[in-house]
Design a binder for these strands. Sequence first.
DNA 1: CGGGGGATGAGCAAAATAAATCATCCCGGT
DNA 2: ACCGGGATGATTTATTTTGCTCATCCCCCG
Lengths: 230, 230
Amino acid sequence: MTKRNGNGKVAILKKKKPSVDWEGLIATFAGGAKHAEYGANRTIFSQGNPADALFFLRKGKVKISVTSAQGKEAIVSILNAGEFFGEGCLAGQLLRISSASTVTDCSLTKIDKSLMARMLHERHGVSELFVTHLLSRNIRFEGDLVDQLFNSSEKRLARTLLLLAHFGKESKSEPVHPRINQEDLAQMVGTTRSRISKFMNKFRTLGFVDYADNGGLFVNSGLLSVVLND
Amino acid sequence: MTKRNGNGKVAILKKKKPSVDWEGLIATFAGGAKHAEYGANRTIFSQGNPADALFFLRKGKVKISVTSAQGKEAIVSILNAGEFFGEGCLAGQLLRISSASTVTDCSLTKIDKSLMARMLHERHGVSELFVTHLLSRNIRFEGDLVDQLFNSSEKRLARTLLLLAHFGKESKSEPVHPRINQEDLAQMVGTTRSRISKFMNKFRTLGFVDYADNGGLFVNSGLLSVVLND
DNA sequence: CGGGGGATGAGCAAAATAAATCATCCCGGT
DNA sequence: ACCGGGATGATTTATTTTGCTCATCCCCCG
C-alpha cells in the first residue's frame, strides 16, 4: 500500500521536514485501525456525535469547524497529510466538539480510542509521533490565539493566507489553494465576507496576492508578510 | 472567612481530581531535573530567550504572555499546579515565543529538553502524563480560539471569569482569585481595561459577580453562564 | 442563446470597539 | 492625618467592524 505519486515523493522527503516515517508506523496499526477513502466535501464526523475514535489523515485536506449556538460557523483549522484529528476523545471527551469534513479527496485511518490508548502505551514510535503531532498542533493553536488577541482582521487575513501558502506548497510559485472562497476565508479569519472582499482587493492592487486564470490564488509571501509587521 | 495560604496545603491535597500521581512521577526525574522555588511576580523566562528546557509547575500559578511587535501584551493562559509549560522547545523551537512569570509563589521543576526527550522515550508513565497534558492544553486552546472567533468581548469576559472560577476552586463559595486586576483581565480577554470596567459593573449590578471586602472576586457560575448562551 | 445561481466587488448605516482622558476611591507609608 | 500611587468607574471621541443591500461577473445548464 505504499503510495508514491510519481515525481513528488523524493522532493517531499528531502524537504526541510525531518518528519517521522508515519506511513510505516501507521501500517503497524493493522487489525484495529480501518483505512477509508473519502471524496471531497464529505462529512467525517459532526459536532455532537459520540467520540470513540480518532483519525489519521494519510492524504488530502480536512477542515475542522465549529458551529455556535447562534448558528455561526468558524473554521478552526485546515489539516494536511500526516496529522491526527478527533483526538479529543482520548482526553475523555464523549462527544465531538467540532465537525470534520474533507476538503479534497482523502485517505484516512480510523483508530479506535481504546486501540490508540494501547498503542500509546506499548509503542514508543507511536507515542513519539503523537507527541510531536500534539506539540505542533499546540503551537499552531497558540499562534492562532495570539493572532486573534491582538491583530486586526486585515492582519489576520494576511496571516491566514501566509499559513495557507506555506502549508500548501514548498515552492512559492504554486497557487495556495485550488479555489478557496471568500466565505471560507471569512470563517477562518473570524470576520465577514464583505470585509474579506475588501481586503483581498486591497492586497491584490498592492501586488500581495494574485488570482490565476483558473481561480487559483497566488500569495507573495515576502510582500504580504510586511502587512504583519507594521 | 478566608483561607490562609501559609499552611493551606492540606486542603489542596485532598482534592478529588482523578489525576495521575505526578508528584511521584516527577520525582523520578531526579538527577537531571532541578527543583526551584519562585516568589510571586518573578520572571521564569522571556520571549526571545533561548529555549532548551521545559518546566513542570508543582505548586502555584503561572502566567503565559506574549508581547506583540507593537508592544501590546496578551495573556495566553494561566496555568495551575500539575501543568507543563515551555514545551515548545521539544518541537524544535529554539527561542521562547512567549514569556512565563509567576502569579503566586511557585514550586517548579526545570527539565532539560534532552532529558525530557529521553524520559518520553523510556518511561511510559512520563509520556502518558505528557500526552494527557498536551491533549487538555489543546482542548483549552481550541476553546479559546473558538471563543475569540465568534464571541463578543462581553461574552469572552464571561467565559474567562467562568474558567477562572472553575479552575480556581471546586466549591462555588470561594473567591475566584485573590485580586486579579482589570488590566490583566483585559489582556486575557483581548480588549481594553475600560471595556472590562464597564462589563464588570454590568455583571455586578446583575448579580453575576460580586466583590469581597478584601478585593476577592466571587463568580455566580449559574447566572454568568446565561450570558454565554444568549 | 438566454437564464439561473454562485461568487465577488462595492457602499452605507448601525453597532461594537478602541483610545484617551478625568474623577474617585482605597490603601500603605510617613 | 496627610500624601502619593495604583486601581477602578465613567465619559467622550475616533475607528473598526458588522450587517445588510445591490450591482457585476462568470460559469454551467437548459
